[in-house]
Design a protein around this nucleic acid. Structure first.
Lengths: 212, 212
DNA sequence: TGTAGCAGCGAACAACTGTTCTATAGAAGA
DNA sequence: TCTTCTATAGAACAGTTGTTCGCTGCTACA
């Protein structure tokens, strides 16, 4: 990427502002008036350069067919339903099939696609209490979960301990016969469980914490 | 809002899909082919209804001038620059004024407005190492920071300990003469510091962790 | 049976808009 | 001085696109 001329910088800025205010891209002639340029061909000329340098993407022959590539990301927003809470003493709520519906769930969380990585069946839970401290998760945090019944070795999961009637967030490892549940905080010791005492309730794919 | 006809529902869906895939709205004729309609006037007719019912907004005479109002979501998204990393042994990078620029920063993070709460001067840092464990922050986490020099009592801040040449994330309390730095993990003990040994480098407003 | 309203169709117009062509001026280099 | 490259300007063309108009078929209702 070479350095941009003042005019090219102005065009990039204008593209961003325009798309922000209205919700569609500008025409070549919009840019003419927005950047005090006196000919559409000058805009065309500079847009070609900006595309060659990778700042924008053009769609030939299509009106308003200009994309700001750094903003492409903006369209990859995902809405996640917050379907309940997670606490040590109770199993996590199993998401009902219609809970995904945007209109049904009361609270929605908006995250970028690169946090969910395109996974299906993702939902969110609010953490109640400080029992997940050893997973580096505090009271009030929001946990992003994926609705699965099994996890790979080493993945963080919500595990229901049947005998203890307790849910815990741990990294799950299969050691020979037993299951090793390892806290995210490596300073803490793992606990071991019999395979038929645990139930994987979901995979933890992320944590979001809001302070003050 | 009345219930929509199948055709109107199809148009709404198409508007969403189209804007998602490309990053500009469709033309009337795009809708014609996208919804198997045989005349542009039918689209025009139904768009008018959709606008009257409040589902979309139209910009007369402007090509691709159709906004999906229910997807206002896009405007609740904020782009945060990831300007560097935070580790125990080095001061956190002070954001240069132009680091906010979308085109300048290499990596951007997208978060919903309710995470930043409309604050100014917000940036993000990637956590390097496990030295922030007592703040319940792990290696690889992303910390959302606000560029301020002072914080309220009890707020989490990035504190530079001059003598120790170390940055740490703690809740800051002013106790009589000394400053008490309290870990987020309430099981951990606070440390105390002299006022002229510390420098507030920013307020921590959130944490994002991505697993597996 | 006649009327009114809704939904759709096809064609056409006029404005909008991307693109191209020619020309000009300055800077850099041979 | 001549050439080349870059940046700009104005004009024109052709395809794109929003909008309108007349017409048809259907249903409901009196």
């Amino acid at each position: 990427m070479k350095t941009l001329s003042a005019r090219q910088q102005c065009i990039i800025d204008f593209l961003g502002r325009f798309a922000q205010e209205r919700s569609y891209p500008p025409t070549v002639r919009d840019i003419v008036s927005g950047c005090d340029i006196s000919s559409t061909s000058v805009v065309d000329y500079n847009l070609d350069i900006l595309e060659r340098e990778g700042y924008i993407r053009r769609h030939p022959g299509i009106s308003r067919g200009i994309e700001l590539v750094s903003r492409v990301v903006a369209s990859h927003i995902r809405q996640i339903p917050i379907i309940g809470q997670i606490a040590a003493g109770e199993p996590i709520p199993v998401p009902a099939p219609d809970a995904w519906d945007v209109t049904v769930s009361s609270e929605m969380l908006e995250v970028s696609e690169d946090l969910t990585r395109g996974r299906e069946a993702v939902y969110a839970l609010k953490v109640k209490g400080t029992s997940m401290i050893d997973a580096l998760i505090n009271d009030g945090d929001i946990v992003l979960m994926q609705n699965v019944n099994t996890v790979e070795n080493g993945e963080m999961a919500a595990v229901w301990l049947k005998a203890e009637k307790e849910v815990t967030l741990k990294k799950v490892y299969r050691d020979r016969k037993r299951i090793r549940l390892q806290p995210a905080n490596s300073q803490m010791k793992p606990i071991y469980a019999e395979p038929d005492n645990i139930e994987i309730q979901g995979r933890v794919i992320g944590v979001i914490r809001q302070l003050a």
